[in-house]
């Protein structure tokens, strides 16, 4: 595959791969020139912390969308795990028990989603809309509609503390390690290849004996687990269980996954793209807050960003298709 790429093509590939990185650097510089506070250690820690949580939230979602499916339950899975963790602590389960319960919730919802989509062949949107409603409901019910406070900091607290001269929270490292492992799976193992093949022609990989049902199940379970891990980290970070925490993450998550799909493998959501796009959105929002933009304006910006990203991706795909027809 690679050996036929000439130097010129490699350079062209590099630019399509890394334009978002360049945009990120330029934007950071532009905002920092207006508001130098952007690069204050305190702000950097905040940005990296929310970056880590966001990446955890959408790592699994990236592959679900790459495989041509959709999962709109991930943010409510996070909310459920978040509440379950806080509620478990209030019941005296201890931190590890509470974290375990949170992750089990993610596993269970992931299994349910995967079973309904892969085995029962229901449409993924309807399934995950329903499980999202179910999770949100359960999350609220755990706290009888209100927030559950967490008194004592848990084992993850040290991860959220700034390290390395006060600018980097430790949590970034395990999250990046996990993302790196996922990148390896996506690029070097059969699973990554099958994920992208599945989006294009599920029958093709089914006919050569790839366990499509197992793969689909695995993708939804992984998405559920990632989201629940994010929910557990949120419990530690906020020192509370917040039943309504899921809502905003839906649009955030989809934006970073689809925006990230516009680099590295253009038109295909991928781990490296998701990482870059998450950092991009994180810096953008932090900068917007520093510049004094209210919440709802950021929401409008994000929607517009997602929409324009979609337009670019669709146009790129169409251009690709036409070139193909011509050649």
């Amino acid at each position: 595959m690679d050996r036929r790429h000439s130097k010129g093509r490699r350079l062209a590939r590099l630019t399509t791969n890394l334009w978002l990185v360049a945009a990120l650097v330029l934007m950071t510089a532009a905002i920092a020139s207006q508001k130098p506070q952007l690069l204050d250690p305190g702000n950097v820690v905040a940005v990296l912390k929310s970056f880590s949580i966001m990446v955890m939230m959408v790592l699994g979602l990236t592959w679900v969308i790459a495989a041509g499916k959709i999962d709109v339950s991930f943010m409510q899975v996070a909310a459920l795990s978040n509440m379950l963790c806080a509620w478990g602590l209030s019941q005296g389960w201890g931190w590890w028990g509470a974290i375990g319960a949170g992750l089990c919730a993610g596993l269970a919802v992931g299994l349910l989603n995967g079973w309904l989509v892969a085995v029962m062949r229901l449409p993924a949107l309807i399934v995950t809309i329903s499980t999202a409603g179910l999770c949100a409901s359960l999350a609220a019910a755990l706290g009888k509609g209100t927030v559950i406070r967490i008194a004592a900091p848990g084992p993850l607290a040290s991860l959220l503390e700034p390290q390395f001269g006060g600018a980097v929270p430790l949590i970034v490292l395990p999250v990046l390690a996990l993302a790196g492992a996922a990148w390896f799976v996506q690029e070097r193992l059969t699973m990554g290849r099958y994920i992208y093949a599945m989006a294009q022609n599920e029958a093709a990989i089914r006919s050569v004996g790839v366990p499509v049902v197992g793969l689909t199940l695995l993708l939804f379970v992984f998405s559920g687990l990632c989201a629940s891990l994010a929910g557990v980290i949120l419990a530690e970070n906020l020192a509370s269980g917040q039943p309504m925490i899921g809502g905003p993450y839906l649009i955030n998550g989809l934006t970073v996954v689809l925006l990230g799909g516009m680099m590295v493998h253009v038109g295909k959501p991928n781990i490296l793209g998701t990482l870059t796009a998450t950092l991009f959105i994180g810096v953008l929002f932090s900068g917007a807050a520093l510049l004094g933009l209210p919440d709802y304006q950021r929401q409008i910006i994000q929607g517009a960003l997602l929409l324009s990203g979609l337009v670019v991706a669709t146009l790129a795909a169409r251009h690709h298709g036409e070139r193909r027809k011509g050649g």
């Binding site: 290849r193 992208y196 022609n201 029958a203 093709a204 990989i205 050569v208 790839v210």
Partner: peptide, 17 residues
């Protein structure tokens, strides 16, 4: 049934990589 975005080679050995 083939995967259009993959090379002929990758299609031939799909599932037997």
């Amino acid at each position: 049934e083939l995967v259009p975005d993959m090379s002929g080679l990758d299609n031939i050995f799909l599932g037997r990589e």
